[in-house]
């Protein structure tokens, strides 16, 4: 019996919509594969834009084209396959408007910042770019400095942070700084002092929420068992890490451990309620700094207890 709407009834039967079949373009001639060619076209168009300087950068030097087409694709395999990062609680990060992401810092090299960037771009529904506040030492370094700027970093300076937040950007800060990245293995997941709370002042001034973030797994990638201070001083570095493999195995020692990561975004702490004068009030700033630090520390302990092994 013919039915005007046969699709449901004929489960299993291969129903062909004749109109659509007729409209479909003819099969490509043998030897051509359209989907792959689209990648090729995109890659060549990217090269053309780079060669002719036809791309936009913002005043901080953020190069969206380079970040989305070079940095993130390079970081993605680390995120997905190597550290198998799980991003939790992304709903606490607003879809638009400024917010300050505050996380723990460790791992000798700041891979934690890079992975947080990937998480927010790949897994957040609004595909947000994280704008990190970097140390001046990193921005001074040749090759690394310009690359950091081009991929969205800027100086950890009050003016830059407020300007980014007020223009509605998502700003990432790691208040532990060098004390964090260069912390010995024995002190993993123990938060260092959170600077002087400059990040809280910035959030208060811009009136944006603070999102506490706990990154688990990052503090085991390079177990730092020693710090060659004289060598660090000689090279002008904040620390010179000694790990079970570095520098003994040479470049091979640079391979990080494949720990399993979880990046947990916590409930946002509202700052708008404190009023505009709060940024000038040291007691409010201290109190809020402590609160953010305690929140991140609690999230870390909770996350560590729920973890069965470093690698799973």
């Amino acid at each position: 019996m013919p039915s005007p709407h046969p699709a449901r009834d004929d489960a299993g039967a291969d129903v062909i919509d004749l109109d659509r079949a007729r409209r479909r373009p003819p099969d490509p001639p043998p030897g051509e594969e359209p989907p792959r060619d689209r990648d090729l076209d995109a890659a060549l168009a990217f090269l053309r834009r780079r060669l002719t300087g036809d791309y936009d950068v913002d005043v901080f030097g953020f190069d969206r084209d380079l970040t989305e087409r070079v940095l993130l694709p390079l970081a993605r395999p680390l995120y997905r396959s190597y550290w198998r990062v799980r991003a939790v609680g992304l709903e606490h990060v607003p879809d638009h408007g400024g917010a300050l992401i505050v996380a723990n810092h460790a791992g000798t090299l700041p891979f934690d910042a890079l992975m947080t960037k990937v998480a927010l771009f790949d897994e957040h529904p609004a595909h947000r770019h994280l704008r990190e506040l970097a140390a001046d030492l990193a921005l001074r370094a040749p090759v690394v400095g310009p690359l950091l700027r081009k991929t969205g970093n800027t100086l950890a300076h009050h003016d830059d942070a407020v300007r980014l937040l007020e223009s509605g950007e998502l700003v990432g800060v790691w208040p532990e700084g060098y004390k964090g990245v260069g912390k010995p293995y024995g002190e993993r997941y123990k938060l260092q002092r959170f600077g002087r709370g400059g990040f809280v002042t910035v959030a208060l001034r811009a009136g944006v929420p603070i999102v506490p973030v706990a990154i688990i797994g990052s503090e085991e990638i390079y177990p730092m068992i020693g710090d060659a201070r004289p060598l660090a001083r000689l090279l002008g570095l904040p620390y010179f890490p000694l790990t079970p493999t570095f520098p003994w195995l040479g470049p091979l020692g640079l391979v990080p451990l494949p720990s399993r990561w979880t990046i947990e975004f916590g409930r946002a702490i509202d700052t708008a309620g404190y009023g505009s004068g709060a940024a000038e009030d040291p007691m409010t700033v201290f109190e809020l700094t402590d609160r953010v630090r305690a929140t991140v520390q609690q999230m870390l302990y909770r996350g560590l207890m729920g973890r069965r092994s470093i690698f799973r």
Partner: peptide, 8 residues
């Protein structure tokens, strides 16, 4: 290297 992105 230690200056903000924009000078006021």
């Amino acid at each position: 290297h230690a200056d903000p992105a924009l000078f006021r």
